[in-house]
């Protein structure tokens, strides 16, 4: 037997829980989300989608404890001085 005051508290708690946004399991385990990518069943379009790219970034962050700098060889190379151009060539 609950008191009216207790009932009120339960309802408030249930209402509060209902307000919490649903979280997919993969948020905690991004590797699970990537399984189809590595078993060859994911399309390229899906693989390049933001959700998959975020999962990839989360896994790499965990593996390498990256600080955002020097994330890949390509990005490090981008910081090197470009070949001096006499004629402007985008990207050099």
């Amino acid at each position: 037997m609950t008191t009216p005051n207790q009932d009120c508290q339960y309802h408030a708690l249930i209402a509060l829980l209902g307000e919490l946004p649903a979280q997919p399991i993969a948020t905690h385990n991004p590797l699970a989300l990537l399984r189809p990518l590595f078993d060859g069943s994911m399309t390229i379009e899906v693989a390049l989608s933001p959700a998959i790219q975020e999962a990839i970034a989360a896994c790499e962050q965990l593996a390498y404890q990256r600080d955002g700098k020097g994330r890949s060889l390509c990005e490090r190379l981008n910081d090197l001085p470009a070949i001096p151009a006499i004629h402007a060539i985008d990207g050099w």
Binding site: C74, L77, L80, P81, I83, H87, I89, D90, G91, W92
Partner: peptide, 20 residues
């Protein structure tokens, strides 16, 4: 010797490179 400065594949102008 210049360190193989990478080409930016996203913005590079292939037509200009071909002409040069």
């Amino acid at each position: 010797e210049m360190g193989w400065t990478g080409m930016d594949w996203y913005s590079v102008d292939f037509a200009t490179i071909a002409a040069e």
